[in-house]
Structures are given as C-alpha cells and as structure tokens.
Design a protein around this nucleic acid. Structure first.
Length: 340
DNA sequence: TCTGGGGTCCTAGGACCC
DNA sequence: TCTGGGGTCCTAGGACCC
C-alpha cells in the first residue's frame, strides 16, 4: 500500500495580507486587523507588527502600547471569504479535489494519488507559485503522512516555508518543542501536563497512555498518537455547519433592557437568515450566551420541537434572556442556533 | 481602566423511557 | 419496603482552534 502524503497549506497573516493587497500603501508598515473600540482585540497582525511584540488576540490598546505607530485596519470578512473561496477553488482546479477546509485561511490536501514519482516538495513549490501568481498571497506548506504532522510542519517555517515531518526527522523537528506549541494543546492541557513533568512534545510521545488518561481522559490516547506522528490521515472533504452564532461585547457593561434586547433582535435576524440556507428547521436548539465579567460565560438554552419560524425563535430567545438575566449587568450578549 | 467573535468537540449530570 | 441496567435526549460548561 502506498504511503499517504498530506499537505497543510496555510496562508500567511491572511487578513493583513488581503488588506495590503487591496491597499498597497499599507505594505512595509506595521498593521493589525481588528476593531477600534475600547475592548477590541487584534485579529491578525502582520510580520512587521509582530516584531514589536504584537500578537493575535492581544487587546488593541496593549498592541498600541507595544507599537505606537501601529495602523489599525477594520476587518472586511466578505473580502477574506472571497479570497478564501478562490484559494480552495484554485487548489481543486489545478491539483486535486481531495481538499479539506480547516478554517478560513488553511486546508489539508491529500496528494497521494497525484504524486506519480514526483516529490511532495515539487507539489509544494508549485502550489506556492500558483497561489502567489493568481492571488498574490504567500502560503506556508507542511508535508506529512497525516494531518497532524502536516499541520505542525507548516508552522515551523513561516512565511513562505516548506517543511516536511516524517518518521526519520520527527524526533529532531518536533520532540524538542515545548508542549504548549503542540496543536490541540492549549493553556489548560499544557499546565496539566507540566505538573506531571511532561514539558516537551517528546516527553508526551514517550509517556504512558494509561497513566495519562487519569489526567486528560480520553484525549490522552489521541495526543500521544499525534506526538508519535501516528494520527489520522483521512480527510473530511465536506461538512455542513452545525451551529450559527453571533455575539457582541458592549463598550461598557450594561443592564439596559432596550440596549440588550435590541442586540438580541439584531443577532437573531442575522443568525436566522443563515439558518434558512440549511434544509431542516426542526428541533432546533436556541441559546442565549452572557458574560457577566471577563472570565465567566453563562449559557441558557432550550430545544424547540416541531417546525420553527423567525417569530418563534426570537420570542424564545427573548424569554431565555428575561427569565435568566433580566436587570443583570452584563458585558456580552450572544445568540446561537444549533442542532438542526 | 486588561483579553473579540465564530466555530467544533467532549463531558457530565439529570430526565425519561423500557 | 427502598431501588437494576441500558439507552437516548437535553442542558451547561469547558477546552480548543483561527
């Protein structure tokens, strides 16, 4: 059986790169895509901004402290979506339809069947050139035998990098990295692992899955597999959305009934119109999400049986709000539709 | 005058059914 | 005369990703 070859293709600083394409005056300057209000954060900084210590998810005021001449550009999601669609279409038309969309700026490609004695590097270079020539965007490409190694590989060389992780170099490329740099290991898992002296991806690779399950539950097995370069190479070629949501952080915390319910109405309208493009409108779960301070999120939901329409959804959401949060001072309000 | 917004997946407890 | 066992659905919350 032929060995599977997966590429992970990642567009570098995607939002910023699109903004620079649309407005060439921005290039060569430190920029960050994100909101301009007092509680906004950075969605995407370009490489120049990163040199000043600006990072994604950083509060914008903090980014401006680190880089006073930072140019803040408000996001244009419709444009990013267009570039993202073009990116996927180019790959499918020029290479293979074995493409899994991982997010707005990245995908996995299974090139096993189109290799024909050529190397993965040959295709990686060809893909980089195609995206650069047709869209004007830079991509980093990771080569692996499965999604995990490909994903980790693309992160090793940026921008415009090509890196392979295979069984002969996994120890050298991956195992020395600190555990928090592993895909799917966030702050909570990293601190749990550090407590039991698992500090690097190599430590995790060599750890005992039975012991680790006591700390991480079922996830332990998959994480150890990944660290050893043995995860799934099966791509998910198409999937339907499982939920639609909207949320909004108020400029200042509020308990104002009109202000909050107006937000709920706006969000519901938006989210419901997305739902109409799906085929089924039955047994839908509606949820209200609230943040009372910056740390805690509370959600209240209920499942509506039978057929639904906009009026039923909106009155259900308003009822959830009134029954649970009326007169409470809140930081964020959100609505979510799921389970359809 | 600290930390957005849009998603996915998993887990745990309770209700309810047979 | 004091509570089995299997299964499913619903709800709430947490962790993670970009």
């Amino acid at each position: 059986m032929k060995k599977t070859t997966i590429l992970h293709v990642d567009m570098n600083c995607f939002f910023c790169s699109v903004e620079e394409l649309l407005n060439p005056k921005l290039s060569g300057k430190p920029i960050a895509v994100g909101g301009k209000s007092r509680r906004s954060v950075v969605s995407s900084p370009n490489y120049i901004a990163r040199q000043y210590g600006v990072k994604a998810a950083m509060p914008m005021y903090k980014a401006l402290q680190k880089c006073p001449n930072l140019i803040v550009v408000e996001s244009h999601f419709d444009k990013y979506e267009k570039y993202s669609n073009d990116f996927i279409t180019l790959l499918k038309e020029n290479f293979t339809n074995q493409v899994e969309i991982a997010s707005i700026d990245e995908c996995y490609i299974d090139i096993t069947k189109i290799l024909n004695k050529k190397t993965p590097q040959y295709f990686a270079i060809k893909i980089q050139n195609t995206i650069k020539n047709k869209l004007g965007l830079n991509v980093s490409i990771g080569i692996g035998t499965n999604r995990f190694t490909a994903k980790m590989a693309s992160g090793l060389k940026k921008p415009l990098g090509i890196q392979e992780i295979n069984s002969s170099n996994i120890a050298k490329t991956l195992w020395s990295l600190p555990i928090e740099e592993m895909h799917m290991v966030g702050p909570a898992t990293a601190s749990a692992l550090k407590k039991i002296n698992i500090l690097t991806i190599g430590d995790l690779a060599k750890s005992d899955s039975f012991v680790l399950q006591k700390y991480l539950g079922k996830r332990a097995v998959e994480l150890i597999h990944n660290a050893n370069g043995k995860s799934s190479s099966e791509l998910i070629l198409s999937s339907k959305p499982k939920s639609f949501s909207k949320r909004h952080t108020f400029e200042y915390d509020t308990n104002n009934y009109d202000e909050i319910t107006n937000q709920i109405k706006l969000q519901t309208k938006d989210v419901y119109s997305q739902l109409q493009h799906t085929d089924k409108l039955q047994n839908t779960t509606i949820s209200i999400v609230v943040k009372t301070n910056r740390l805690t999120t509370i959600s209240k939901s209920k499942t509506l049986s039978g057929n639904i329409n906009y009026e039923i959804v909106l009155s259900g959401l308003l009822e959830l709000y009134e029954n649970n949060f009326y007169n409470k001072t809140i930081r964020l309000i959100g609505v979510c539709l799921s389970n359809f």
